[in-house]
Design a binder for these strands. Structure first.
Lengths: 348, 348
DNA sequence: TATTAGCACTCTCATCATGAGAGTGCTAAT
DNA sequence: ATTAGCACTCTCATGATGAGAGTGCTAATA
């Protein structure tokens, strides 16, 4: 990532173009720039600079006598070297910093984690008009608190898995019908006593190793525990909360039906989103993917602003905003960052 | 609902127009009808009949010299008096009756009810290209099997509610921190012994009445049980499974961006859907709402084919297809009917 | 009497030409 | 180094034109 050099004036022009285009997706011309932002230059000068910026690949023209439009590279430079990230959420409407307000509100619903993520996702999309995405803590990384088993019907057992983070999952599993509730309790007691405090993944490994090591003097209880535990933790669904397709449809960027189809297709398939977000599941801070920087083919016309949230320094899940490349990056970054931190805080 | 009279010829023409328009949304002209369906009439005759059908309100013309298009009333007559409901799911592709195939597949995943509904919804929309909607059993109507409480963290309890139908819900509730696990067990035992086999709603009423009657000699246990039970069963989310917006966007009916916005808006808000489906939550068989017949304003340009599914003769929830008024009613009805019956069967 | 052939008429839609408007690039002047 | 001036290019809205499809009506036909 070479840091391109740009003189101050060029930066100003690029800034003006990006700002203007972000607030309204019309190609921006030299005259407009001089009128709206009163630098000291004439339109002709601006034209020269714009031509330079175009040569450098920061701007492009939809056609020969239209104004200029930022390229992905232009946005990238804007984000890296020009933009200042907002320190407050007071945009449009001046009702105070609603991101902060939301963050406060969040503290109250942290008891029900699953519900919380739903809430966060909705709020994200509502406040930004972009698509909000939240992945709950990846099951494997959460910390096992305890597990319980309850007999259910003839040959089934409901396993209730509780984690430190407040994620409660239940799953119906089929078991040998000769297992009594007492047996189940013993298994649960064993698992709880032995493994509380470790991550789900860790435990899985430990159990497997244990099983292997003690193959000879095979303990019936442990054997059962392993088997039943593995069933209980295998959650097939990759749950991702996504919200805001409707809001995004109202952006002028997607006034074209084919664009909507494209974006719907991309976010319909949650695997695509997971694939995208997995990229950064172990990293820190806010990440920005602009257009074709996107590791996922289906989103090369979209931008993604994402951040992991953490629990005691371990990254747990991801929250993100997906929108057009013509995104209000400053706003988006502020939002994602603030809310990610806020979630992290509620976990600690 | 007066049964309109129509001579055989008129029916044939109406049938031809609807069929043709369903398969391709172009206004259908007299010449086309005579060519495609070889009745014995000439285009001129067809024109006369069409004019009559227009007078009766079954057809309409987009403009003076276009072909005819069915009105909602036209579809209604078609559905009531002309159409034959398919007895098989072998449409387009001739891979056998895939609805039946799906039904078989369903038997295997009935263990995890929540997952099942997701699956059903997705399959519905995929097979039909319309929007699939499924409401899980309304919590109040399901039959209480048992409840358990597990202490969680300092001042919280996880309530696990199991119903006859296989719906397992968990909820974190805050409780008096002096309640011990023993207390919780006693409460659970009391509730399970006393109320297993009744509907969630019934129990609520019984408990309230009990509380009232025994106000004087107030039993601490019962008081607690009531309080905690009420918390446990209050599920705020109206969960509705909806799927297939993307598929529907590919229909030519929604090639217009504003139409997509409209439909998205309607199904985004799950309350709207709930409101619609509540209309028939106590009735039987397949219901068809065509366009403006729709009780919900937001859907007056859409059609809904819906059916309740039942458990032991009591209606539990609804499955539905939402699509354009130009819907393949025969196919949709067959699908909804078959799958609803299939779900009912897996519950018994 | 019911049906049909014939024909004038209407409306849509794609195509094309036109011209205003916006913005550029270049050159010459400052 | 900057800017004014100007010719040039491209888009977009507008309106004209004509082919195509389909109708409604009337007169002829079985």
């Amino acid at each position: 990532m070479v840091m391109e050099f740009l003189d101050e004036r060029s930066k100003q022009i690029l800034y003006a173009v990006v700002q203007s285009y972000i607030s309204k997706p019309d190609p921006v011309g030299s005259r407009f720039v001089t009128k709206k932002y009163s630098f000291g230059f004439s339109p002709a000068t601006v034209r020269n600079i714009m031509a330079d910026l175009e040569d450098l690949g920061f701007l492009s023209q939809p056609h020969t006598s239209a104004g200029r439009v930022p390229t992905d590279k232009g946005y990238r430079f804007y984000v890296d070297s020009i933009m200042v990230v907002r320190e407050t959420g007071e945009f449009d409407s001046g009702e105070g910093d609603f991101v902060q307000q939301f963050a406060k509100k969040l503290e109250n619903i942290r008891s029900d984690v699953n519900n919380m993520f739903l809430e966060v996702t909705n709020s994200l999309s509502m406040m930004s008009n972009y698509i909000g995405v939240v992945t709950p803590p990846r099951a494997e990384k959460t910390i096992f608190d305890r597990i319980d088993f309850i007999r259910y019907k003839e040959d089934k057992v409901v396993a209730i898995l509780m984690t430190e983070e407040g994620v409660i999952k239940n799953k119906i599993i089929g078991v040998d019908s000769r297992l009594t509730q007492d047996d189940l309790n013993r298994i649960a007691d064993y698992l709880n006593a032995e493994y509380s405090g470790r991550t789900i993944d860790e435990i899985k490994n430990l159990l497997v190793r244990k099983a292997y090591r003690e193959k000879a003097l095979w303990d019936k209880l442990i054997a059962r525990a392993i088997k039943i535990y593995e069933q209980a933790i295998s959650f097939t669904e990759d749950d991702v909360y996504v919200s805001g397709l409707y809001d995004v449809m109202n952006l002028p960027d997607f006034s074209d039906i084919s664009k909507i189809r494209e974006i719907s297709k991309a976010i319909k398939d949650k695997h695509i989103i997971l694939k995208l977000l997995d990229e950064l599941s172990d990293s820190e801070g806010v990440h920005v993917f602009i257009g074709n920087e996107n590791p996922v083919e289906e989103m090369k016309n979209l931008s993604v602003v994402a951040s992991t949230y953490k629990e005691r320094e371990r990254p747990m899940g991801v929250i993100a905003l997906i929108g057009p490349t013509r995104m209000d990056y400053s706003k988006a970054i502020y939002m994602v960052d603030t809310i990610a931190k806020c979630i992290s805080r509620t976990f600690d």
